[in-house]
Design a protein around this nucleic acid. Sequence first.
DNA 1: GATTTTGACTATCTTTGACTTTCATATATA
DNA 2: TATATATGAAAGTCAAAGATAGTCAAAATC
Lengths: 152, 152
Amino acid sequence: MARMSDIIEDFIKQLINETDGSIEIQRNELASYFKCVPSQINYVIDTRFTTERGYYVESRRGGGGYIKIQRVNVDRPGKYLMHIVSSMGDSISQQSAEVFINNFVDYDVISEREGLLMKAATSDKVLGGIGAPDRDIIRASILKNMLAALMV
Amino acid sequence: MARMSDIIEDFIKQLINETDGSIEIQRNELASYFKCVPSQINYVIDTRFTTERGYYVESRRGGGGYIKIQRVNVDRPGKYLMHIVSSMGDSISQQSAEVFINNFVDYDVISEREGLLMKAATSDKVLGGIGAPDRDIIRASILKNMLAALMV
DNA sequence: GATTTTGACTATCTTTGACTTTCATATATA
DNA sequence: TATATATGAAAGTCAAAGATAGTCAAAATC
């Protein structure tokens, strides 16, 4: 069965597309629309609408509260890439790597084929054999080196 | 009696044929359909649906998890790559990897940028930290997986 | 001896709900 | 009137429970 979280994610993304990059929702309203607990909305936002994925979220509690989600505009892809690389840290999970790579493709910093290459090189499928702490370190190293190679 | 693994392999291959080269299965579902333990599905995938044999596999755990199996394209350049992949062995030095990659670029199987990416991902600069026998094994694995990704 | 089968244990992702925090407004009090 | 307090209406947090898939090695089979 399809994941509820994915369905909610798609719904929100469509709303954002329809409204020029920024929406305001009520958590409880959305939750009751999807017949889920309100905290699942938080889960979706925390895992899918992160800074890494290019979103900016703010909210307010209390009466008349809301959650506002905005898609971040990237007008200088090269600069964006630089910033990402330097903020990336020395260790990175497969999931995060994938998110980064998808972003690069979305913003036309790399081609789709290049994205596939990067994902293939950083997947747990190939790095899984490496022990737990080292794996993510080597993954970060691979990713950074590939990006650096493109920036030359 | 025929081997269970072979039966499962044939079943999956038929599914792939019926669906244009790409399927998504649930491990537990398939296991209960064949009345085997779930890990046998992993065994079948690990031994039969490898990059050497021309498949690209990805998966996701947790609720709504899945295993996705794609058959790679074996048309023209793909066929050449496929041949390379299956002849490459399980271990490869940085030097050999570079020779392979340069060849791909020379024969226009990949672009120059893609070549740079591949070299970056398989260089000793990033893999040097891994101990001697494992390093070349992981390098081969990365290279094969990248090539397979391009053939999907 | 190599391959296959099995199962216990692990890792990862999602769903759920009880409890907490914050804010706006209404009401009480100095 | 101005300020303090109570009330209710949101959203946030966090951990437990549930749902998958992965790993690894022992046992079985060929």
